[in-house]
């Protein structure tokens, strides 16, 4: 077409994709969630089993248990039991190296817990400090997202989004990502993923965590039965945390395949370069 247009598409423009507020909140959330996960795994190690019900001693076997035993040669063996199945997980789960490299009995290994050494009291301090940070940051985010219309403008799916659902799934399967004007907005799968985390799994992990507090249990006796009891809440807390980890992995993967530096820059400086529309689709 005309000369100016082709020039513009040769060097696609940068635009402000993420406001400063969103960027700061995003990275606070990254830090808080990481430390909650790592200290949470240390807390899990103090009682490395997941039960269903009101108590841990109700005559039913745990859903998940990570423990250890000594074999005939006196070697420590780590075992992970899920349902009725036992898996030998020496080296990672049940038995792993301590700071001096010697095998030690611990559910999750030192390289994925904060603090590294078995230290429940300090892990709880880390956990509850960053839980406050996560919750305050999360509430601030929700208020901002509502007030700035980030939620309604960028996250709530439109009718057009819903109609593109099939196409979007097909695009994701082929690792194809929107270009040109379409790249300025979130696609439908992206919106659903963000909404499920913002309104689903983060609130769930927080609520299940609060359900474990004996003090808050007294707020309205029996409210934690919505989870099936305190030990069920602990199990839900654990599973919801891992769902969030799965989200993070998928999120980071998508960031990488859809333009790592462009995405990373947009979450640091706010500036995003709209990918140029490719004229020849057969190229791929």
């Amino acid at each position: 077409m005309s000369q100016p247009h082709s020039l513009a598409s040769a060097t696609p423009p940068l635009y402000l994709r993420h406001t400063l507020t969103i960027r700061v909140m995003h990275w606070i959330n990254v830090m808080a969630f990481s430390l909650l996960l790592l200290s949470g795994l240390q807390i899990f190690n103090a009682y490395p089993a997941l039960n269903w019900g009101k108590s841990s001693y109700n005559g039913q076997a745990p859903l998940l248990q990570i423990d250890a035993y000594r074999d005939a040669q006196g070697q420590l063996v780590g075992v992970t039991r899920i349902g009725g199945h036992a898996f030998e997980t020496t080296g990672v789960l049940g038995v792993s190296a301590d700071a001096n490299g010697n095998p030690s009995v611990r559910a999750f290994p030192a390289w994925i817990t904060v603090p590294g050494a078995q230290w429940l009291a300090l892990a709880r301090r880390w956990h509850f400090s960053f839980a406050w940070l996560l919750v305050i940051n999360g509430v601030a985010y929700l208020l901002y997202a509502l007030a700035s219309r980030h939620l309604s403008r960028d996250l709530i799916p439109t009718r057009r989004d819903w109609r593109s659902l099939g196409q979007s799934i097909w695009d994701h399967v082929r690792f194809r990502h929107p270009q040109g004007a379409e790249a300025r907005r979130y696609n439908i799968l992206q919106k659903l993923a963000y909404l499920s985390v913002i309104f689903g799994f983060f609130p769930l992990v927080i609520l299940a965590g609060l359900a474990m507090s004996p003090g808050l249990n007294a707020l309205l006796p029996g409210w934690i039965d919505i989870f099936g009891g305190r030990q069920s809440a602990r199990t839900v807390h654990f599973i919801a945390a891992w769902v969030l980890v799965a989200f993070v992995f998928i999120h980071v993967f998508e960031v990488m395949v859809s333009g790592l530096w462009n995405n990373l820059r947009s979450m640091i400086t706010g500036r995003y370069r709209v990918p140029a529309e490719e004229s020849d689709h057969a190229k791929r």
Partner: peptide, 23 residues
């Protein structure tokens, strides 16, 4: 980190009535 403990205590004292009963 333990300043969070004070925050937790203050929050619980604020929202949980003094004589609220455990389940």
């Amino acid at each position: 980190l333990s300043s969070a403990e004070k925050l937790t205590q203050a929050a619980q004292k604020l929202i949980v009535p003094r004589n609220a009963m455990a389940q």
